[in-house]
Amino acid sequence: MKLAGLTNNLSKTGLLIITTLLTGAATLAFANGTETTSSPPPAPAPATDNTAPYTVVCDKSSGQTVCNVDKQTYIGWRTYHAVCHVCHAQDAVGSSFAPSLVERVGAIDKERFMDVLANGYSGQIGVMPGWKDNPNVNKKYDELYGYLKARADGALPPGRPKRLP
């Protein structure tokens, strides 16, 4: 009875959690946005042009969503919150003078993203510096792209992600 109630409740947020509870398996939100459940987790899908540059695994079993990300996305999160967040704010949600990258990164292609990151941009309200001369950023363009794309795609909720083992 109790278990059934729990199952009903949980199924609202996705069957995946039940599997997590029962088998301890993780649920993968793959780059293409589909969620699959398995035990053990399958090998990550081979990267192709159609897959986004991140892996995000979210677990809602504790009542709060805890997301695990691959190393590259994690480094992107960390670099973002050391440098970019002073204008674009925590979780890339934007501030009074710099746009939300959750919205912006979804609206531009990767090429444009890389160009602005390296060379900067002058907007109506703000001016973004180019990062090509900063060694703490210019080696992490792909990482930043992965993190911000995960945010823009809605695959990664706000907050600090954990790093996949």
Binding site: G63, V86, A89, Q90, D91, V93, S95, F97, P158, R160
Partner: peptide, 20 residues
């Protein structure tokens, strides 16, 4: 005239889920 660090931190406290 909103802005400053306060303007950046305007969304502070909204990390993660709102549950709980």
């Amino acid at each position: 005239g909103i802005g400053g660090w306060a303007g950046i931190g305007m969304a502070a406290g909204l990390t993660g889920d709102t549950e709980g």
